[in-house]
């Protein structure tokens, strides 16, 4: 692979630094983030590679990488980074930016899950776990996923189909309306 680097190489990094409040140039590529990341096995780019690609200004490569979507937000990387880089925050920033700019969904299930989750809060004020699981399976066409588990949970009295909406639903809806960054343009 050959990357063409031009005089604007730092622009993308600066954008990310601005959006996240984390100085991208501090990363010295020690790899400690990658060393402790629980999901690195599933990632196409390791966390330190993501940091490097940002430093190289390779926007498309970064924003179409599945890595940010696989990040479990466990903050192990952030906690142990010797340069105090908040990588988990960068992962958040990348997810938000990728949605905003309509990059192709590499981990569609994660995106779908987040959306259904937030819709549930928006409409009820609280999360309804049962409805969330059903809606998620429906949306991702996995109708029988966790069926057995669901049955068992039902027997244990943990599944309820009744709503659990709060009286301040409108207040919560308003929060969603007023919050910036909630801008899913759909896929590009």
């Amino acid at each position: 692979m050959i990357y063409q680097l031009n005089a604007n190489v730092r622009n993308f990094g600066e954008t990310i630094s601005e959006l996240s409040g984390v100085d991208i140039s501090t990363c010295y590529q020690c790899g400690k983030c990658t060393a402790g990341c629980p999901v690195v096995m599933e990632m196409s780019h390791t966390p330190n590679q993501i940091m490097r690609l940002i430093q190289l200004g390779l926007k498309d490569e970064v924003l179409s990488s599945p890595t940010p979507w696989l990040c479990a937000s466990c903050e192990t990387c952030t906690t142990r980074c010797p340069k105090e880089v908040d990588i988990a925050k960068i992962m958040d920033t990348l997810r938000i930016l990728a949605l905003k700019e309509g990059y192709k969904r590499k981990e569609p299930n994660v995106v779908a899950f987040n959306k259904i989750f937030l819709d549930s809060i928006k409409n009820n004020g609280r999360l309804q776990e049962t409805k969330l699981a059903m809606a998620f399976n429906f949306k991702t066409l996995q109708f029988f996923k966790d069926m057995m588990l669901g049955q068992k949970l039902f027997m244990k009295g943990k599944i309820s189909f009744s709503g659990d909406a709060i009286s301040g639903v409108d207040a919560v809806k308003a929060i969603f309306e007023r919050s910036k960054g909630f801008l899913d343009k759909g896929e590009r």
């Binding site: 997810r95 899950f113 809060i121 004020g125 609280r126 207040a171 909630f182």
Partner: peptide
């Protein structure tokens, strides 16, 4: 009384403001 969901990970993965506003309510 009338508490709402804290937003958990999906909120901070989607909007920083949302991730602060939901718990702050």
């Amino acid at each position: 009384a009338d508490w709402n969901c804290c937003g958990a990970s999906p909120a901070h993965a989607t909007s920083e403001e949302l991730s602060l506003a939901l718990p702050l309510r």
